[in-house]
Simulated assay, not measured.
Amino acid sequence: MPVERVALPPETRVRAGHEPLPPLMAPGTYAVDPTPWRRPWRAWEELSAAETAASGLYAPVYPVPLGPRNHLVLAPGDTRGTRLVPERCESHCLGIAAGEEPNLVCAGCGLGVGSREDDCGLWQTVWYAPGAVVRRPLDVPAPAPPPPDRPPYDGSDEADRGDLRLAAAAGAALARLLAASGGAPLALPAGPVAELFGRELTRLLPAGPPTRRVALAAPDLPEDRADVVLVPADRRTGEPTPPKAPPARPADAPVAVPVTARLWAGLALPAETSPMPLSGRPPAGVLRDDYPLPDRPGRLRGPDRHTLRWTLSRMPEVRQPWLRALYDRI
């Protein structure tokens, strides 16, 4: 089955609840996780700055994994030709979790190729070990992913679990907003952006007059001269979507903070329920009805603090003294 490479979802490290979570990856997609995997483990104090940076870490985490990097991440339904080895699974609560040895082996030769997880509180995921599988281009396009499922926002636990993706996306964006702030208060636009990020930014940044202004931006939105802009992330790379007309002088370009398209749509288009940004806007009072999604919730779940700290630890900017001190407080 063909699969298309996309950016690693920001909710990858989120663990929540006592019920199984849905698949991490959308059908027909895969991602590459650049972070080291499990053992050998080392204490942060035992490693030099060069060694931790080589592992993609710039602030203390405990313990530091130094295993292989670049695992391929897929939904279990997109894998073929493998066999599960139950005795290599680490946990048996409501499902299975990855252990120190691969719990997935090639159905033909028995070679360990990766691990599957679907225990309670974990996303249903397959992690193919780097070097165990070979990626080959195909002459057929990958299937178009379906619209993301989103349970109704009725205040129930089920709705709360379905909002984990938005909370993680907000946590990753908050980390980049903090780095872009320079350690000074930010002026947020009124509405969903202030509702989502205002409380955390007030708690984490010092009091005083704002020195930088935040705005929403996208290729199809009018230009807003702001210091920091929230833009849709490219689904394939996770990087900010480039503007149609770059500024004449690169020095004048604002700091671009990428957010997932689904979160950006909830912030920029509060009257629109699409999970993806539109090309332009519909007429006032007109809503799309070609996807099975409910209306936008009355409030967005706050940023996930675990994702916030995880993202900061992997940003070189966290080595700045003021941001490192903030990291240690979170």
Rank of each mutant, 00 (worst) to 15 (best):
R5D: 00
A26N: 05
H71E: 12
V228Y: 11
A49G: 15
T311K: 00
L300E: 09
R236F: 11
P219H: 12
A184K: 04
Y62F: 08
F197W: 04
K244P: 02
L138E: 08
S313H: 12
P209R: 11
A50K: 10
R329Y: 06
P60Q: 08
R329Q: 15
A144W: 13
A26L: 14
D149H: 13
A16E: 10
R296C: 01
A59G: 07
A97F: 01
G208S: 05
G155W: 07
E239D: 11
P192V: 10
R236C: 10
L111M: 06
C120G: 06
L74K: 09
A107P: 01
A26Q: 13
A226E: 12
A256W: 09
S313I: 02
T125D: 00
V231K: 06
A75D: 12
R301P: 13
C93Q: 11
Y327Q: 07
F197Q: 09
A159G: 15
L104D: 04
P102H: 12
V6M: 04
R305I: 01
A251S: 08
R15T: 14
M276L: 13
R314I: 05
A97E: 03
V61D: 03
E51C: 13
Q124M: 09
P60C: 08
P303L: 07
Y62W: 15
T29Y: 03
A268W: 09
D290G: 12
P137D: 07
T202P: 00
R135P: 14
L177C: 05
R225E: 14
P148E: 08
E195C: 10
G162R: 06
A265L: 06
Q320V: 00
P270Q: 12
A75V: 10
L326W: 05
T82N: 02
V257H: 11
L323R: 01
T125Y: 06
A7G: 01
A187L: 13
G155S: 01
A75Y: 09
S91C: 01
P23H: 05
P292L: 12
